[in-house]
Design a binder for these strands. Sequence first.
DNA 1: CTGAAAGCGCTTACAG
DNA 2: CTGAAAGCGCTTACAG
Lengths: 333, 333
Amino acid sequence: MKMIHRNRQVMEMVTIKDVAKAAGVGLGTASRALTGNGSVRSDTKKKVAAAAEKLGFVPNQLARNFKMRSTMCIAIIIPTVFHPFFAKVVYHCEVELYKLGYRLIVVNSQDDVGKETRMLNMIKQQRVDGIIFITHYEHDNIDPTLPIVSIDRHVGSGFPYVTSNNYEASREAVKYLIDSGAKKIGCVCGATAVISGTRHRYEAYIDVMNEYARPVWLLKPLFKHGQEMEVMREYFARYPETDALFTGSDMLASAAYHVARERGLHVPQDMQIIGYDGVLDAWETHPKLTTVHQNVSEMVKAIVGLLMKRIRGEETPQRVEIPAMLVKGDTTR
Amino acid sequence: MKMIHRNRQVMEMVTIKDVAKAAGVGLGTASRALTGNGSVRSDTKKKVAAAAEKLGFVPNQLARNFKMRSTMCIAIIIPTVFHPFFAKVVYHCEVELYKLGYRLIVVNSQDDVGKETRMLNMIKQQRVDGIIFITHYEHDNIDPTLPIVSIDRHVGSGFPYVTSNNYEASREAVKYLIDSGAKKIGCVCGATAVISGTRHRYEAYIDVMNEYARPVWLLKPLFKHGQEMEVMREYFARYPETDALFTGSDMLASAAYHVARERGLHVPQDMQIIGYDGVLDAWETHPKLTTVHQNVSEMVKAIVGLLMKRIRGEETPQRVEIPAMLVKGDTTR
DNA sequence: CTGAAAGCGCTTACAG
DNA sequence: CTGAAAGCGCTTACAG
């Protein structure tokens, strides 16, 4: 037993050495007995377990991690966790990784490229074993052999990512609006610097409009979270006759609803709205949006699977697609 | 330079030893030069820096942490990050801790006491340096000298915590309803097992009702996130004549709004609602709630301050109060 | 100011 | 199956 002075406190740490001594076995044997790596006679194993129990031994993970070159930590880098979609992603990531013994470090990049780059360094610093990286930017010079995966967007070129079937699901949504009798269908969809699945959402819109010989009323602004209302006001100023709108996110759809109300329009009578994500529902938002529901839980399971393979150095597909589904709410007829 | 075989990949790690050799200095000197601890002549410092730069040296944090007995990680244990209030808390915690060089590990306890207890062990395992712990349960047998702090509720008895002035702010809210001419004022407020600031919210309501000789229409259910609508339906079934409602959270207030609408009531004409938290606004929720706005950013700054002191082994106040403020929205007259 | 050495608590070849 | 030893990459007294 060793007295440790730390932070003005004296704490006693019992190490594996103490356990070995108490059990009357060698250091290595104690380690093998405790971890289960390597074979140990079952009675010695019991002796060691008893000694560990008696002394209240708690393995020092830091020492183990150091020796094993693994932290059992994964980082997720997102623009901000204070956003329903990312919060949901983070939630599922933690739950999924927890099952595997990993802990999840959350980093809000706040769209700060510098912070993103610094945090990517955590792998080299051995602070984390892998990273789930969701960014709005291009990062070219990342070593593509690193255990980094992404959701819904390419990061550089070599990283595996998970996405929903943005194009097909968006087509379905836009067609739904056409079938419902909408005449002037618009689209607002955030532009991202990175090649992103988001792009396929408005591309689907454009294609359907062209197929039906309808005018394309599209706004794809570069905006930050919290500016959704401004964006929608700009859209309505430009295309005031719109009677149906497909948006690239639920936040935009919600903002569209409010701006429509500001303008005295009734939803869904005068104006129909379809969003994308399907994460706002859990939070009693009003109104219940018609939206393309992404299966975040499945997407996260897939991404964690990819990351684990990557950490083990195994081959992975570059891209995994999880189907999304149009879910009818109160903002369409 | 050393070849490391890890996960079927061969990676070369440059260690401080390589840097020292390249710079022509001793191992210790290189360390002192790089960290800035201990004095080093400025020209040797330059030599070392140059060598580190040339070799692309990245300090192995894991080794440093091990030696220093510190992980520079803090964990936050919350019921779920997929909840606006906790997401906001997590956001600010990460931003604040980042400034201090700490990383934030997020744990969704999902109200699982077992998981909470296991995660509390991360301190002993040296996986984290401290914990921010928000729980619904009582945990008696935690060592009170551990670096654990809390928000809005006591955990055991010894831990410092930050709270808003629940009682006074709630009084103000209830009085506001009275002044606005409301006749039948009710209150719905989640019950928590732990001694919690939430309690002061409905206590304030009760006190004001008594002072004004009004009947107390109070529901304090034990419910999980996502059950807000059911809770509110139960309330309205019991007290259908209510014309004003004070709720213990914005989620409940939002649910109250929807249930009121279900019942054909207009807000705020027939029914006024005041919530508590002030975090839903950022997310374009409808309607804009009148709510008691907690200053989450300041609360988090305070809690991080407390935690740092605790980690250093310094004395801290048991309780820090950050004032909350009634913010008028569209759900009151 | 600097170098050589000890040591943090573990795991894992290496011999027996 | 087991013990003694080496070593992970750093930091920090300890002498000079």
